[in-house]
Simulated scan of single mutants.
Amino acid sequence: MLDTDWSDSWRDAFRIELRAEAIGLACHGWPVLPGTAPATESGDEAWSGPVPVHGDWADRLDAHPGEIAGWWDGDHPYSLLVATGEVVDAVEVGVELGKRAARLLRATGHPAPIVATPDGRWLFLSTVADGLPERLAASDQIRWHGQGSWVPLPPTPFHHGVVHWRVKPDVLGWHLPQAAAVHSVLARALDEAENRDWAQQLVGASAAA
């Protein structure tokens, strides 16, 4: 997980922060749930990311803040997840495409909450959609999180860092951007990235000739 000493006091502080974040998100109507975390004592590198702790997680999405607080009252620093397809959707991309899309969103004046994970993934949050446009759905660089899925939120722990906000939702007044607007910007960013790669290939071919 984190390259640090998991003393009891540090563990307690981290758990309290996770609980506070979970309660805050729940109070804004986000369906949060506890997820698994890396094995801190064993350093289990087989852990590939958080999944819901409860098998019936889909039936717990209307939990009240008091119940949610109880999930983080134990000794284990559960990760923090939000179920998608209910209030919020997410589109997952790599770092380079994420940076390009974030710049375009700022330029259009329609920023979106963005989450970054320590393993190099960016998550663009939006309102709920029925699906992705064909341009995005056909790309192996894009993963959509809709109904029946979930994504990690800060400060979820990974092996070598924590999930963090690139753009916090409170900066936007907790108003999620429309999914169609986010999808349109991501499609434009994908087009620009592919055009750049194509141009670089042409330059490389010319230099080798």
Score class of each variant (00 low, 15 high):
E67F: 11
P118T: 04
A107G: 12
A180V: 13
G43I: 06
L172V: 04
A199S: 14
S149V: 05
P113V: 07
G98F: 00
W150D: 01
H164K: 11
P50C: 08
A83V: 00
W165Y: 10
W10L: 14
W144M: 06
L105I: 07
A22M: 01
P152D: 04
P111F: 04
L153K: 02
L33G: 05
V167K: 08
G173E: 04
H54N: 14
R60A: 08
R60Q: 10
W10H: 13
R11E: 09
D170P: 08
T156Y: 04
T36C: 04
H159M: 10
G24C: 02
G85S: 03
W6A: 10
V87F: 08
R135G: 11
R100A: 15
D56G: 06
A46E: 14
R60N: 07
L61N: 08
W6K: 06
A20G: 12
A205P: 03
L123G: 00
H145Y: 10
P154N: 05
A116G: 09
R121T: 08
T108P: 05
V88L: 05
D44Q: 11
G35S: 03
S9A: 14
V185F: 03
A13K: 12
G49A: 07
V115L: 03
L104W: 01
R121Y: 08
S126W: 05
P154I: 00
P157L: 13
V95C: 10
S206I: 15
D197Y: 13
D8Y: 06
P113S: 06
P118Q: 04
